[in-house]
């Protein structure tokens, strides 16, 4: 039971560590905003007639940097809706396991 509680604590710390390492976002994002300056390999990747691809970045027909329009695949773990409840639940479970284990040991000894 103690080992189970320890695993729960380690998992909770792991979740919080991952959350901290990935930018400490408040809410989870399952897609990421469009690129501020669209990347390209060729002008055709930029989407519109007259667009140009220079040094891997898109420029529109007016010569301005072109931003993407599509949300990108990606994931940012948020504290409020995922990391917090998950880590909190695991720590609560660890606490219960420690408590039960202590009571059992006391009853036995």
């Amino acid at each position: 039971m103690r080992a189970g509680a320890a695993v729960c604590v380690v998992l909770a710390l792991g979740i919080l560590g991952y959350w901290a390492a990935t930018g400490m976002h408040f809410a989870t994002r399952t897609t990421l905003p469009p690129e501020p300056h669209l990347s390209c390999a060729a002008a055709a990747d930029c989407g519109e007639e007259g667009d140009a691809c220079e040094q891997g970045k898109c420029f529109d027909a007016f010569g301005d940097p072109k931003a993407g329009k599509e949300w990108r695949e990606g994931y940012e773990l948020g504290l409020a809706d995922r990391a917090g409840p998950a880590a909190g639940g695991l720590l609560l479970l660890a606490g219960i396991l420690f408590f039960v284990d202590r009571r059992k040991r006391r009853a036995a000894g």
């Binding site: 809410a27 989870t28 994002r29 399952t30 897609t31 990421l32 905003p33 949300w71 940012e76 948020g78 809706d81």
Partner: peptide
Amino acid sequence: MKSGNDQR
């Protein structure tokens, strides 16, 4: 309108 979080 999109913000990257369906619930939001």
